[in-house]
Simulated assay, not measured.
Amino acid sequence: MAAVFEWFNVDRAAALVALVAVVASTVYAHRQTRIARESTRIAREAKDDAKRSADAAEQQVKIAQDARDEAHRSADTARDMSRMEARRDHLNGAVKDVELLRVESRPHARLGRWELFGLFKNNGHRVYRYKIAVEYSGGVQTPSGRGIVRPGEVVSEHLLTEAPYDSIVVWFDGECPCDVPDDLDGHWRKSWPAPEPVVPDDEHPALQ
């Protein structure tokens, strides 16, 4: 035991303390290094998570924008289709529905002159109000009859005392979903060149 105490002197004690301090410092340094690396890893993962979250948020914004754009496109398409349907409905209105069957020449019972009458038929499913004019050379027009023609109905309207004329012009009004503004005289305008008048066998309008 005395030999141990003789060997363990102040210098060796100081060296041992220094060695322990070095070991402790090394252990501490390694520990701090591990802590620093773990902190760096955690920070990097947090940064990656934040980037993924930002990318996901940006993707969601893009998806929402795309959905909004698609909704706008769908709405525009629906409006265009609605306008096309309304326009087609307009074109399939009175101009297509109403036809001039013929012009009849009938004698006036008391005045001894011949009168011209137009027979018009509504082949459509709408009710139309109409206003008729006779057009002469140079575009001069003389107002004639007016009234209402119902689906499937034939109406007879006096046109004029038999004389040369160029055409028969009719303005129509009725239900129409289109956005075409009404003319001053009506929503639809149709004209027929003056046909050769016929004389009915019974000299009365044949409404059939």
Rank of each mutant, 00 (worst) to 15 (best):
K96R: 13
I168P: 03
Q59N: 05
A46F: 07
Y28A: 07
K96T: 13
E70A: 13
V103C: 00
A94N: 08
L119M: 04
E6W: 11
A43N: 14
R129F: 08
R87M: 15
P181M: 04
P164S: 11
I148P: 05
N92C: 07
I148T: 12
V154S: 04
C178A: 13
L119I: 02
E203T: 00
A194F: 03
A13K: 11
W188S: 00
I35H: 05
S39P: 03
P197A: 04
V149H: 06
F120E: 04
H30I: 02
H108M: 03
S191K: 02
V10F: 13
P181W: 10
R73T: 09
R126N: 14
T142C: 09
I168W: 07
V27N: 02
R41P: 02
Q59M: 02
R106Q: 03
D11A: 15
R146C: 07
S191D: 15
V10N: 12
V140D: 11
A36C: 01
K96D: 12
V169M: 01
R37F: 06
D66S: 12
I42N: 10
V149N: 03
H125Q: 15
R150H: 13
E115Y: 07
V17W: 13
R37E: 13
E157A: 07
G138W: 03
P151K: 00
E196F: 01
H204W: 07
A133R: 10
M81E: 15
F117C: 06
V180C: 11
G118A: 08
P177T: 12
V17Q: 14
Y128W: 11
D202V: 02
V198L: 07
E70W: 09
N123E: 02
T161E: 14
P205N: 05
D185G: 14
V180W: 14
R31Y: 09
D173S: 10
D48H: 11
P195W: 04
V154K: 03
T161K: 13
R87F: 15
R41F: 07
Y128R: 01
Q32P: 00
A2N: 15
E157W: 04
R87L: 15
A163M: 08
D55K: 05
H90V: 07
R87H: 15
T40V: 08
R31Q: 10
H90C: 00
E115S: 03
V61N: 10
E38R: 09
E203D: 06
C178H: 06
R83Y: 13
R126G: 10
H187G: 04
E157V: 02
W171K: 01
Y165T: 00
S144F: 03
A133Y: 10
L111P: 01
R110L: 11
V27M: 05
E157M: 01
S39W: 10
V170R: 05
T77N: 14
S74T: 08
A18C: 11
I168A: 02
D183L: 04
D185T: 14
A15W: 12
G118S: 08
E157Q: 07
A78F: 13
D97A: 14
K47E: 15
L91S: 07
N122V: 03
Q141S: 13
D201C: 01
T77P: 07
D11P: 09
